[in-house]
Amino acid sequence: MGSTSTLDRRTFLAATASLTVGSCLPASVLAAMPLSPALFVCDRRFTGSLARADVHATVTYIDGDVTALWRDQLSGLWQNGTASVSGLTQPAALFCLEQLARGHGRSVSARHTVAGTDAIAWVISPVSPRGFL
């Protein structure tokens, strides 16, 4: 799966903003963005924009495929606990994570397609009090 590092909300927003010259995330994504997500998932394609990371959350890098992320981190993290996970990935990776989230009491609470790129910024949070939807 590769290296991990950490980042905080400001970096997430900066990362996204730097992909979209002159545009910013909508209020819904900003509101949903946790101050310190348990994990931030970043597709390596978009790492350039995370170079200036201020560190508060673990960053996991993927190369499009979410298998190792699921196997090594999310399946454990989502068994219990209420932590949110955020990310900047391609839609195909988010599609997989969204499907997996549904089976673990979570859903996508915010998503924002970054204009002019393949990137999508998202937050997956627990759905209370549902068991697995």
Binding site: D65, V66, T67, A92, A93, F95
Partner: peptide, 13 residues
């Protein structure tokens, strides 16, 4: 070994 890599096919490449 189970995987989800087939879905990378759906990504833009």
């Amino acid at each position: 070994v189970p995987s989800l890599r087939a879905f990378s096919i759906g990504a833009r490449t």
